[in-house]
Simulated assay, not measured.
Amino acid sequence: MENVKIYLNFFIEYLQIEKNYSQYTVVNYATDIEDFFSFMKEQAILHLEEITYNDTRLFLTQLHNRNYSRKTISRKVSSLRSFFKFLVREEKLSENPFSLVSLPKREQKIPQFLYEEEIENLFSISDCTTPLGQRNQALIEVLYGTGIRVSECCNIRLTDIDFYIGTVLVHGKGGKQRYVPFGSYAQDSIEHYLSQGRKLLVSRLKEPDQHSYLFVNHRGSPLTDRGVRHILNELIKKASSTLHIHPHMFRHTFATHMLNEGADMRSVQELLGHAHLSSTQVYTHVTKEHLKRIYMSHHPRA
């Protein structure tokens, strides 16, 4: 299809420079758009101006036939709508064929979270006399104590932490930054890890001062998302638990416990770094269940 590669490159520059999207997000956009144009080529549509609303519906039908999830289809539609909106803005097209396409309703899944006794059990497992044990304890205290994303946790640098006021500067999605407070348990764990464990782990590097990331692996290099997943799996094995924990569960647990204890929705939204309140409202389903359990357990006529 003529000019598509040129227009796609312009669009990618727009996402990177004007929207400041991450490389991961940009790659997803490009993949979704290229997927659509491969389909259009199969339909013998060779010009952008020829694409109609009916073509978009045909594309959606194919996605359904491929058994894509609602979430994936929604993402692809959103990517293509943004791309064509950009082309209209740049006066490359007069109409956006995706402007009338409605996004499929997403399945509203209640987030999985840990109960307080399960969290306390995890906090009692690490051997805090060893460098890795100190690292692991600090890691789970930070994840639970701040509710930040695992990727955000892995990107914390030493200069991002302010122990005096108990906050960490978090580098979030789209280059957005926010300050998130952490409690005394997280602070004690971080200080213990920094004074002992991290020094020993970083000393294993050929160049000990080459990075300032807070969390490091057994070789002293920066810890990755995959590394966090491995650590949590090992902690679960030590706990002899059948519980399946994924790293994001700490974020869900943080939000759920905050709301259960009376925090307001806007404050939790700010702490989580959600752009839209609707993203935070999913946790109200969990708190409603919590309130229902309390009612059923304590009301005389329940």
Rank of each mutant, 00 (worst) to 15 (best):
N155H: 14
I165W: 09
K206C: 02
F123M: 08
P208H: 14
K173W: 10
L223M: 01
C128L: 13
K199R: 15
Q134F: 14
L143E: 01
L200H: 15
L122R: 07
L214M: 03
R226E: 05
S151A: 10
L132E: 12
P222V: 06
V170P: 08
N217Y: 10
V180D: 07
I140T: 05
N136A: 13
Y185D: 09
V216R: 06
F163Y: 08
P111S: 07
I161W: 12
Y193R: 04
T159I: 11
G220F: 01
Q112V: 10
Q187H: 04
E152S: 06
R226V: 02
V142H: 07
G166W: 02
K176V: 13
S221V: 10
V142R: 03
G174W: 06
F113C: 00
R149D: 03
C153F: 08
S184Q: 12
H230G: 01
D188E: 15
S189E: 10
F182Q: 00
N155A: 14
G166E: 07
L114K: 04
T129H: 14
K206R: 14
E141L: 06
L223A: 00
N121R: 13
Q210D: 08
G175E: 13
Y213P: 00
I165K: 09
N136F: 14
G145Q: 10
L158H: 05
Y115W: 05
N121E: 14
R229H: 04
V228H: 09
E116H: 11
E118S: 06
P131V: 09
G183F: 03
N121L: 09
G147Q: 05
G197Y: 15
G227Y: 03
T159M: 04
V170D: 02
I156V: 06
Y193E: 08
G166Q: 04
G145M: 09
D162H: 03
N136D: 15
S151E: 09
I140R: 11
E191Y: 01
I165M: 02
G220R: 07
S212N: 07
G175M: 11
T167E: 09
V216A: 01
Y144V: 04
D162K: 00
S189L: 09
I161A: 02
D127E: 07
S151F: 11
A138K: 06
L114P: 02
E141A: 05
E118D: 07
R204N: 13
S203F: 08
Q137H: 14
H218N: 08
A138T: 02
L194A: 06
S195H: 12
N217I: 06
H211Q: 03
E116R: 12
N136K: 13
E207G: 07
I165D: 08
E117M: 01
Y179C: 04
H230K: 13
R157Y: 08
R229S: 02
I148P: 05
N136P: 10
H211K: 06
S203Y: 12
G172R: 11
S151T: 07
G166P: 10
I125S: 13
S195A: 14
E117T: 11
P131T: 10
L201M: 03
T167S: 08
K173T: 05
F182N: 03
V170H: 11
L200V: 15
H218C: 00
Y213R: 05
V180F: 09
G133K: 15
Q134R: 14
Y164Q: 02
S151R: 04
